[in-house]
Design a binder for these strands. Structure first.
Length: 429
RNA sequence: UCCGCGAUAGCUCAAUGGUAGAGCAAUCGGCUGUUAACCGAUAGGUUGUAGGUUCGAGUCCUACUCGCGGAGCCA
């Protein structure tokens, strides 16, 4: 493919180049027109003057919104053009003419856009979000590699529930029931005993009928697990990762954050270390602020928002009551009523973005927990083997990619952070 | 699953129980530096579905469908 990407136009001033893209919009008067072009890397404009090329000028007038075009012209610097550079057009090849494009540049409602998600993602705001999502993903991979983690992906089809609590999507596995994974954690633990420090990154599925701005039925989770890490090591790893991701997005995606009108001072304010609050301290904070809350209850979304508003960085809440957490969470030796785990709550009311903790490494205690949670022991024999053969203290966490991206982008809803969201009552297109 | 709100032109929205309208998009025309360009004209409707109240229903009532927001659960 010949051509230059719009984001690289600044390196070609004075040269004739070809942009391979689509007609985003057209403006102009009777004698001059501006073709606003997009190619996925940005926007620029092609300029046509009637007096110079009357035939090309008239042909260009017939090109409709979102037609695919290859536009050739000479690059000039111009502050009035989107991106600061424009093309003095010499030739246009219409690759495909579009008829009746449904998504206009004016206002649309959520339902209309969601039904046309495959076209909605072409708009500047949506493509900016998706570029930031990609940047977050790359930053996470980069962070893990810099810290000697190996990517070891977990299976998506699983024979049983990971934690036995959440509702699962059931599938027919050649006659046997199987389930779409809600977490790669148990497999991560096995991989960590083999490779030391591992992470997996993939889609997970929750069939629960959650209907809020923070929930998807299918979402992407970055999960890490490290042998010989205690809960403190684990929290340190998490805050360094989140900090690394934010720094890289600020550095490489400032143009996209600007398209989203994101107040980046909120992101720049995030400093290490993140504040740490025990569950008990968090309960006291809520009570002090006049909220009714009893020790032993789990936090709801409004409670998380109240706590997060106290800080301008994500905040860890650690040592939750043992009986509201998953079966594999290790009790604190100093207080068996609480576990060595922590949730990371994002600022500005975005809620929990990470859940993690130290895992039970003693065989007997884990067997007892499986029984208490009424989980089928035979399905977990392989998991118990990890405690039989060379068990070590280990910790890990899972980060919800969409919630992190929603916070970084300052979005109202996680549905815009993934190209094709799967939500309660909506899985088209 | 529960609570609340909504559905009118392609889109975004108006319309005291009394002739369904505007902006944008579309189509046609005008305009030599536009920035969701602008200006003029044309066309565009079984008011989500079914029933009810009324002389008369977009408007009031009932049911249903679909959507949105929130709760719970979680990331």
């Amino acid at each position: 493919m010949d051509g230059v990407l719009i984001k690289n136009l600044s390196a070609h001033v004075g040269e004739e180049v070809t942009i391979n893209g689509w007609l985003y919009n057209r403006r102009g008067s009777g004698k001059i027109q501006f073709l606003i072009l997009r190619d996925g890397t940005g926007l620029t404009q092609g300029v046509l003057v009637k007096g110079e090329k009357p035939e090309l000028f008239d042909d260009a007038k017939k090109i409709s919104q979102e037609s695919s075009v290859r536009v050739t012209g000479v690059v000039e610097e111009n502050p009035k053009s989107p991106g600061g550079f424009e093309l003095q057009v010499n030739n246009i090849e219409v690759v495909s003419q579009t008829e009746d494009y449904p998504v206009t540049l004016k206002e649309h409602g959520v339902e209309f856009l969601a039904d046309r998600r495959h076209l909605w993602i072409r708009t500047p705001k949506q493509s900016a979000i998706l570029r930031i999502r990609s940047e977050v993903e790359m930053a996470a991979h980069e962070f893990f590699y810099q810290n000697d983690f190996i990517q070891a992906d977990a299976p998506i089809i699983t024979p049983n529930a990971c934690e036995g609590t959440t509702t699962l999507f059931e599938i027919d596995y050649h006659g046997d029931p199987a389930y779409l994974s809600q977490s790669g954690q148990l497999y991560n633990e096995a991989n960590a005993m083999a490779l030391g420090r591992v992470y997996c990154f993939g889609p997970v599925f929750r069939a629960e009928k959650s209907k809020t701005r923070r929930h998807l039925m299918e979402f992407w989770m970055i999960e890490a697990e490290a042998a010989y890490f205690n809960n403190e090591d684990n929290m340190k790893l998490q805050e360094e990762m989140v900090s690394h991701i934010i720094k890289r997005v600020l550095k490489n995606r400032s143009a996209e954050l600007e398209v989203l009108k994101r107040d980046t001072s909120k992101l720049e304010a995030v400093q290490l270390p993140f504040p740490r609050l025990s569950y008990t301290e968090a309960v006291e904070l809520l009570q002090k602020k006049g909220h009714e809350f009893n020790w032993g209850d789990d936090f709801g979304a409004p409670d998380e928002t109240v706590i997060s508003e106290e800080y301008n960085a994500p905040v860890f809440i650690h040592r939750f009551p043992t009986n509201i957490k998953a079966f594999y969470m290790k009790p604190d030796p100093d207080d068996e009523n609480v576990v060595l785990g922590a949730d990371l709550i994002a600022p500005e009311g975005y809620g929990e973005i990470i859940g993690g903790g130290q895992r039970i490494d003693e065989l007997e205690m884990l067997e007892q927990r499986l029984e208490e949670h009424q989980l089928p022991k035979e399905e977990f024999e392989w998991y118990l083997d990890l405690r039989r053969y060379g068990s070590v203290p280990h910790s890990g966490f899972g980060l919800g990619l969409e919630r992190l991206v929603a916070w970084i982008c300052g979005l109202e809803h996680v549905r815009e952070t993934i190209p094709f969201p799967r939500m309660l009552y909506r899985m088209h297109p």
